[in-house]
Design a binder for these strands. Structure first.
Lengths: 238, 238
DNA sequence: GCCTTATTGTATCAATCTGCTACAATAAAC
DNA sequence: GTTTATTGTAGCAGATTGATACAATAAGGC
C-alpha cells in the first residue's frame, strides 16, 4: 500500500499551486490529510517511466477532474532543512500504516514547483487516498501549511505576477466568455493593485488578442458590457 | 573513487551555465572528459548534507576559482529521455574505472539548471578530476554537447534575456569600472540586437544605478569616455 | 413614455517615454 | 593648428500612458 521504491524516483517530488478565481479573490487548492491536521499543496512523486511534467499534469488532472490543463514550472526547492520526515510519518499513522524508519519517502526531497491557472467553476476537487479533503482557500487566508509549502505558494504568486502579460493572459482563470471588467479584476487581484479602467481597456484591446461577442444583459440598470473571448492567434505586443 | 550513494542524493543533479563576456561575445565554460571526446556543462551531485544552491555554488567556485559568485536558478529538466547511462560509462572507462551496471550514477537524473554571470578575466578555469580540460566556448560555436546540455544552454540564454533589466543588470560580466559602450555591448550581445547608443545611455543613466568616475584615456584619438560602476543602491525603475 | 442611476465604450488632451538627428566637446595623431 | 573618431547631451517628432470627460445605454420608478 505504501509507494514502492522500484516505481518512483527517489529524493525528488513535485508540488503544484493550483489557482482559481472566484470573481473577487484568488484561491488555491489545499489538501488536508486524514487524522493528522496537516495541510499541504497537492503534489507527488515521479514514476520512473514518466516525464516530470507529465507526472505533475497527471496529479493536477486527478485533483481537479479537468482534462486540459496548462502547467508552468516556476522554481525548484532544495534547501537541506525543507525536508522533514515527521509529516509523512503522521500521515501514515493517520492512515493506519506502519512506516518503516528507513522508508524512501522519509528521506530528503527536492521538489519542483508548478503553478496552474484554472477555471474555478469547472473544478471538482477530488481528494486522493491519503487525504480526506481538498478545498479552496483564499491566498489571504491560508491554513498553516506543512514544511516549506507556504514559501512555495509565495514563489508561485511572484511567478504569476511576472508572467502576466507575457506567458500568461489571465484568461485561463475565467470562463470561455468574459467581460472586460472581469478580466481587469483578474489582473488587479494578481498584481494586487488597482488598474485604471480606461487605460486597461485600451491596452488590452490594442493587443489584439480578444474577440468580441454579444452583449451581456445582467439585469442591472445600466449599459450592458460586451463579452470577449481569448483569440488563439497573434499575441502581438505586451 | 566512484561517488558513493551514502553521501549524495540520488536521481538529482545540477548543471551550470557559466557566462563570461570577452568584449565581443558571450562565452560559456565547457568541460571535456578524458579519453571520451564528450563535452558537458559543469555540474554535479548534491551531497545529502548541503543545500541545493550551495552544491551548485561550490561547483562554480571550484571551476572558476572565484570566491564570490551569484547564481540564478532558471529551469529544472526532467524528461524521461534526457538520461542516458552511456556518457557516464564512457567517462568512467576513459578514467580506467570499472562502473557496475547498476551504479546510481547510471540511473535516471532530474537536473536543476543555474546560470552565473562572471568576469571573464578573473576566471582560472579549473578542470575536475574526471575531466582533462575546461574551456571557454563562444555560444555561437559550441562543441556537440552530451545529452540535453544544448537545450539547457538555450534555456539559460532565454532566461538571461528575460532577467536583463530586472534581476540582472549585466554589470557582473564586466570589471568593477566600465564604460557606457562596454555596458551597451553586453546588452546588445545578450539581447542579440543593436541598441540605439543615445537612447541606451539616457535610459541607463535615468535608472540611477550607476556611479560616475574619472575618464578613461585609452590613447585613441577621440574624446575619452567616463568610467562607471554599479551603485549598490536604489534600483528604481526598469 | 420620461426621468433617474450606474456602468460601459471611447474620445480627448496633457504628461511621459522612445526613436532619431544634430551638434558641441574632446583626445590624440599628423 | 588641423583632422578624425568618439562621447555626452540637447532637441524634436511620434508613440504610449495617465487622467478627465462625455455620450450611449439597461432597467427601475413614476
Amino acid at each position: 500500500m505504501l509507494p514502492s521504491e522500484d516505481k518512483y524516483l527517489t529524493n525528488v517530488s513535485y508540488d503544484t499551486v493550483i489557482f482559481g478565481f472566484t470573481g473577487e479573490e484568488l484561491k488555491i487548492l489545499i489538501l488536508e490529510y486524514q487524522n493528522s491536521g496537516l495541510f499541504a499543496l497537492p503534489g507527488g512523486y515521479i514514476r520512473r517511466d514518466e516525464n516530470l511534467l507529465d507526472a505533475a499534469k497527471k496529479g493536477v488532472m486527478k485533483r481537479t477532474g479537468l482534462k486540459k490543463i496548462h502547467l508552468e514550472q516556476f522554481h525548484t526547492f532544495g534547501k537541506l532543512n525543507r525536508s522533514n520526515p515527521e509529516p509523512s510519518k503522521q500521515i501514515a499513522k493517520g492512515l493506519g500504516y506502519e512506516m518503516p524508519e528507513n522508508h524512501w519517502v522519509l528521506d530528503r526531497f527536492i521538489t519542483i514547483g508548478y503553478y496552474s491557472l484554472i477555471n474555478y467553476n469547472l473544478v471538482k476537487p477530488t481528494p486522493n487516498k491519503f487525504s480526506d479533503s481538498i478545498n479552496w482557500y483564499s491566498i489571504n487566508n491560508l491554513p498553516p501549511l506543512m514544511m516549506d509549502h507556504e514559501e512555495i505558494v509565495n514563489k508561485a504568486l511572484e511567478a504569476i505576477k511576472n508572467d502576466l502579460g507575457t506567458k500568461l493572459f489571465g484568461t485561463n482563470l475565467l470562463p470561455e466568455k468574459f467581460t472586460m471588467k472581469e478580466l481587469r479584476k483578474v489582473y488587479e487581484t494578481i498584481l494586487n493593485k488597482k488598474l485604471r479602467r480606461t487605460t486597461f481597456q485600451r491596452k488590452i484591446l490594442g493587443m489584439d488578442i480578444l474577440k468580441r461577442h454579444e452583449k451581456l444583459y445582467t439585469g442591472a440598470a445600466n449599459k450592458a458590457p460586451y463579452l470577449y473571448s481569448f483569440d488563439k492567434e497573434k499575441p502581438k505586443k505586451s
